[in-house]
């Protein structure tokens, strides 16, 4: 069949000239153009919203920054001033920023080990039938409104937490952060930290669980084939693989913790002095500051609150950006 001369002819006509490359483009129809334009503009709504948030908050708070400059961030005072005595208004959120950081770090320190432990439990310890219900329960935790966490934290957790705080002070009081200027344990950064920690557990657990479930099975089996116990396998295979995913999840949790408002408002005593004695009833939180001052403030103080919101916005955006970067870098490495 192939030996037939005719079929071979085309081969001889090969001219040695490579034909020009033809562009493979479809000219979209009008309806598709409209469709693409609409969808694309929809896709960029996020950009517009984020841009507008930054723009409006900056515009509204520019006078505040012009007047106080960096002191708005580093200052520890918050007063509307007194027109009668001529005392000027002073606004500085330094204590609130420090407080936000303290509370979020306490929350993270509580949430991280528990979340990693739970993620390990779901992936490597739990019997098959328990995995799904557990995952659902933890997702449910993320869906519970923060006002309910605040309510529960204030009425149920606080009495216990005060008792734990007293123990910590009694036995570990020599450590500076457990010192007490005076014996008031209620509404401390410690308690707010526990509440926030509980609130970010589901976020960190979800991400960590997801990362751990992607650990290549052949590596796990290789470890077991070498006589590993479950824990040594986790140490050698799972944790190194998931480390940066865990870090990304932790950053995401940190971002959430820093933006948390009402739950902290209910369980933390806002006070404009930076306080590192975490068991003592005095702390700060930028988001709660906005809620607590909002109802009673006017004009200039309101602008100061917007400035505080802008700072919070920028800080959380940075934390989220970092978390995204960590996760992306890991993904590119391919592990």
């Amino acid at each position: 069949m192939i030996t037939s001369q005719d079929s071979l002819v085309p081969l001889t006509t090969y001219s040695g000239v490579i034909p020009e490359k033809r562009e493979l483009t479809t000219r979209p129809r009008f309806s598709d153009k409209v469709f693409r334009a609409i969808v694309t503009s929809g896709g960029f709504t996020s950009l517009i919203i984020l841009g507008l948030i930054a723009l409006f908050l900056t515009l509204q708070s520019s006078t505040v920054f012009r007047q106080f400059g960096l002191h708005f961030i580093t200052g520890f005072e918050w007063s509307q001033g007194d027109p009668e005595s001529g005392a000027p208004a002073k606004f500085g959120i330094g204590a609130m920023l420090i407080g936000t950081l303290v509370v979020s770090m306490i929350g993270l320190m509580i949430a991280l080990p528990i979340s990693v432990g739970t993620a390990l439990f779901i992936n490597y310890y739990a019997p098959d039938w328990l995995r799904k219900p557990l995952t659902i329960m933890i997702d449910l935790m993320a869906a519970i409104p923060s006002v309910i966490y605040g309510l529960w934290g204030f009425f149920i957790l606080m009495p216990h937490a005060v008792y734990w705080a007293k123990l910590l002070h009694k036995y570990l009081g020599f450590i500076p952060i457990f010192r007490m200027p005076s014996e008031i344990y209620e509404r401390s950064p410690f308690i707010a930290g526990i509440v926030v920690g509980i609130m970010i557990i589901p976020i960190i657990t979800a991400i960590t669980r997801e990362v751990f479930s992607q650990v290549p099975l052949d590596r796990v089996q290789a470890a077991y084939a070498l006589g590993a116990t479950r824990w040594t396998m986790i140490r050698a295979v799972v944790l190194p693989f998931g480390a940066s995913g865990v870090a990304g999840g932790a950053m995401l949790g940190l971002g959430r913790a820093m933006g948390e408002t009402v739950a902290i408002y209910l369980v933390l005593n806002l006070y404009f002095i930076p306080n590192f004695n975490i068991l003592f009833s005095s702390g700060g939180n930028v988001a709660s500051l906005i809620v607590s001052k909002f109802g009673e403030s006017e004009d200039f103080e309101l602008r100061a609150l917007m400035a505080a919101g802008l700072v919070l916005f920028v800080v959380t955006l940075l934390v989220n950006f970092l978390s995204d970067l960590i996760v992306k870098r890991t993904a590119r490495k391919g592990r």
Partner: peptide
């Protein structure tokens, strides 16, 4: 195993 699987973190 079928596919070489050294521990990449080591």
């Amino acid at each position: 195993f079928q596919k070489p699987n050294p521990f990449p973190s080591m």
